[in-house]
Design a protein around this nucleic acid. Structure first.
Lengths: 189, 189, 189, 189
DNA sequence: GGCTAATCGAGACGGTACGTCTGGTCTTGCG
DNA sequence: CGCAAGACCAGACGTACCGTCTCGATTAGCC
């Protein structure tokens, strides 16, 4: 049987993509540049990825987009939980690295619809899940209205954080605070 | 004393940019293609614009980004007003042309920070103003809490509409309805 | 280890150059035009040749400048030999193709000193050699003065033929005849 | 009455052409550059000259091509006269300025046949005349054969000097000496 | 322990677009 | 109406990458 795909080459391409995106804009990333920094032949890239966008996608899913993972334990205080999570996400997307990766994701979405949609779906799913679960808990506890649409809330917060990264003006602590407060007022029983 | 700049050339370049963006992606727009469709020499473009992004900026500010202009009269019913406006904006950004232009704006913002920020500022300003005014009216009427941050609300809605356009899934009427309802519950006195 | 240079591409570029020069002036030759007629990418040309002049040089050395090769057998009659050769050279440079190539050589020499000098040297060398040999033979035979400078003679005839091609008025048979006669009177013992 | 053509502009264009040609190659001369150095508008050049070549032509005829003017008095010694003149011409074409202008003339001739021919004719005429006259004198004095073709001699010397300038290797004093000596042996009675 | 088949690096190839430069033409307003 | 100034259309310049295509050199299994 033939020689298997080189995992080292794969990793170094993904790493090169992350580095390139953080260093400049996604648009400025070049397959040739990637190949050079990764120490890999161009053909090796073209053999395994159909496009620059696909490489970014894999790099984002594999590495992590700071703020994308709602690694927040749930307590009994829904306000505290939502605030902790939204605040963490905003902070993740406020770091230079986070801004760069988020912008690259946005750029690729604005360009390659299909892939962008898929990526957003994949990255948003755990968030939606977390929010749904926390809202459901609040509903069980009788704090939250029964007719609240958890997805709408998750989407709103994702949109806000994402837009803030796009225009490069991270949500301030006050804005985060205000948003959570107002949101809770809107969905409290 | 020399020949003045040709307004016709300028207009046809901007028009070509709008057309190109609507027809494909912003990334796929080419200065050479623009020159060709506009019936203009490449140098004429380079003489007056420093970049593709600048052309798009001018085209967006001059032509109009559907949904960007809050041309909604204010009534005494704040719910109706907010709904009418947010609904109109969402609808504008749901039309193919609106999606295309919004995505182009997003793409340029993700790429050329400076210019993107300026553009967003310019386009958001009238919206912020309108929302501020409407909220203030509501506060005078005693319907709305005094401590509400109008900018936060405007930004939230802009982010939501913009993100919806980005991922190509326009806000449904239900989602618009839900958002306004929840929002009002959050800010009502 | 990579793919080797394409000889086909190289040849078709050189051929395109010869054709272009014969069809028009050297000045009017365009790298883009060359690439197009040769069915080759522009970059392939830039990869291998530093300038238009270098292409012409290679084309001239490889193909042949009519009249540049003194393919004349030597007999015992120095007058006949010199006449045959000078006449052949003049005739070669009188043909439209010869005129065109000679002019291109002159144009490139007038422009790119270094290369022009090298080319002239390379093309003149066999001529100088032939003349030197024939003169030496004449000297052995006692027909020609011992102090004759063969290079001076070769250069004179090259200059004359070249200048004639430049101004587009080929040396007439009479002028060739006269020149050889006068020359021989000048160097005979 | 209309304003007459500006002689100052004309002169400064011609001067700029001479300077440009001496400073670089004829090919590198640019109408725009000319206009700039001459302090003249591009259109003023296009109004009065059909081409770059025409400007050079006028500049050469008006200014002087060093060595082109056979300003040599005739004595009774034909050898001395021919040597003096040919030597002066070679020297003129050996000076950097002379080489540059001669090359420009050659370049324009290689490119614009018509004009080049005309220019060569104009510049060669006085030389041919001078040579014809001197030869005729020599014939009267019985030094020179009656059947000598003066034009052939003039052309030969022009070609030699011109070719020497072209390849940038001025005729050495020895070569000049040798040439005149050999030439005279060829035409002496 | 050789055979074989897909991998890898390197980089040439036909292309497209870049941003710049110049050619010629035209349009201003001043003198 | 000539002229300086400079915008305009046109198109070549030389460069950078694109995605495809050889090359020769490894490197697994499988015989």
């Amino acid at each position: 049987m033939p020689r298997p795909r080189s995992e080292a080459a794969r990793q170094s391409v993904l790493e090169a993509m992350r580095a390139a995106v953080v260093a400049g804009t996604y648009e400025a990333v070049t397959i040739e540049g990637l190949a050079e920094t990764a120490g890999v032949a161009k053909q090796t890239i073209y053999r395994w990825w159909p496009s620059k966008a696909a490489i970014l996608g894999e790099a984002l899913l594999e590495g992590d987009l700071p703020g994308a993972d709602p690694a927040v334990a749930m307590s009994d205080d829904i306000r505290a939980d939502l605030h902790a999570w939204f605040s963490a996400m905003s902070a993740g997307l406020a770091k230079p690295e986070g801004v760069a990766l988020a912008r690259a994701l946005i750029a690729v979405t604005a360009t390659d619809h299909e892939l962008g949609l898929a990526l957003n779906e994949r990255l948003a799913a755990p968030i939606r899940e977390w929010v749904a679960e926390r809202i459901a808990r609040g509903q069980s506890a009788g704090e939250i209205r029964a007719d609240v649409d958890a997805d709408a809330i998750a989407d709103q917060l994702i949109a806000m954080a994402s837009y803030a990264a796009l225009i490069g003006q991270p949500l301030s602590a006050e804005r985060v605070e205000e948003t959570v407060t107002r949101l809770l007022r809107g969905i409290a029983r």
